[in-house]
Design a binder for these strands. Sequence first.
DNA 1: ACTTTGAGTGTACGCACGTTCACTGAATCG
DNA 2: CGATTCAGTGAACGTGCGTACACTCAAAGT
Lengths: 210, 210
Amino acid sequence: MTESVQAASRQEQKGRTRQAILAAALELTQHQGFAQISLRQVARHAGIVPTAFYRHFDSMDELGLALVEQSFSTLRRMIREAQRDPKVFDNIIDAAADVLVEAVKHSKAHFAFVARERVGGSEAVRRAIRHELDLFVSELAVVLARLPNIETWSTEDVQMVSRLFVRNMVSNAEEVVEMPDGRPDLEERIKEGARRQMRLIVVGFKDWRS
Amino acid sequence: MTESVQAASRQEQKGRTRQAILAAALELTQHQGFAQISLRQVARHAGIVPTAFYRHFDSMDELGLALVEQSFSTLRRMIREAQRDPKVFDNIIDAAADVLVEAVKHSKAHFAFVARERVGGSEAVRRAIRHELDLFVSELAVVLARLPNIETWSTEDVQMVSRLFVRNMVSNAEEVVEMPDGRPDLEERIKEGARRQMRLIVVGFKDWRS
DNA sequence: ACTTTGAGTGTACGCACGTTCACTGAATCG
DNA sequence: CGATTCAGTGAACGTGCGTACACTCAAAGT
């Protein structure tokens, strides 16, 4: 920690410790809820003394909010990247299912944190996650509103179907999170399930009236 | 507690204390996760001394499992009653939305517990809830399989759509749980949303091919 | 070259926790 | 009616917790 050859500037080092705290909390959160991990556990895992924690966060609650932010910025980046992929336009459903499973697999820890704390966390953390997810629903609604069968729908209906998609995304993410490692068969199963669910919803689009 | 006019038989009294413990835990769980309430808190709320807790449950984990059981038996009873209502056959969607909101409102605490601990609870509690929900999916699949457009579907497809329904039921239940009291407008909004979602899915039924 | 700053240290505190143990006294049993 | 059972008591323990406070000592600022 202290024997780096290049002298670490003060703020570089601080940033690194901050990341260590976030990583420690994220790892501990995989096996128990965020609310039941202690400041001292986090500090121990991050390789610092308990009191040093306060140099970075005023409280565990603030650490939780920082984790929410980190998780969603990861997710947003992935979706932005996925939107550049041309195959999204050809087959939006299969692409979405792929992206979902891949994204969750890639940063399982963040998804697990969000899935868990969305309902089980402290008031503040729960509100933050809820807010981020609401943003997501609105963003998706904008995309959906441009699809062929939907452009004539009312705003409310589009929001509703957007919620339906996000909701199922969350549920599927939960499933992937709980999936044991090294079971590609289960993964494919979840992906196929997600695909079917989305197709079923989409099939309903063209016969929908108010 | 001790001045009841009629002498309480020993097991009656024990049962009453057990219920007091369950009720205490359920109430405490409304404002924080089950994993972060302590044996001593529960005992205090139930009006007994901490050590007396062990006369009823070996551990907090067993208490949690008992709460899962209690919650689902409540839910099952409600659904069984609802199935007797003739209007279910006329308009299964509106009836389902009504039943959902009413059931959750009636025993909000149990639903809140399940919604929360389904993802945030201890390993054992989570597994128990997951198992109960899986049972639900299978039961619903049997009902769905008899519907007009569905009778020709593969078993897998029926299971999938059943999961879709249960999943959305859980999500809607979560929303009702988080709903502040005395806001019938919000309640109607959620009910309407649930109705639309189900209709959308059902509309997709008749154009579905494997 | 000096002072200042501030990330990380180490000790110490009071508190709530789970669990142990020996107990009490009323309901139940023979 | 005496003996037994057992739900609930109350004191005591060891532990981990959050946080306070005074500290060190190298990088950053002058």
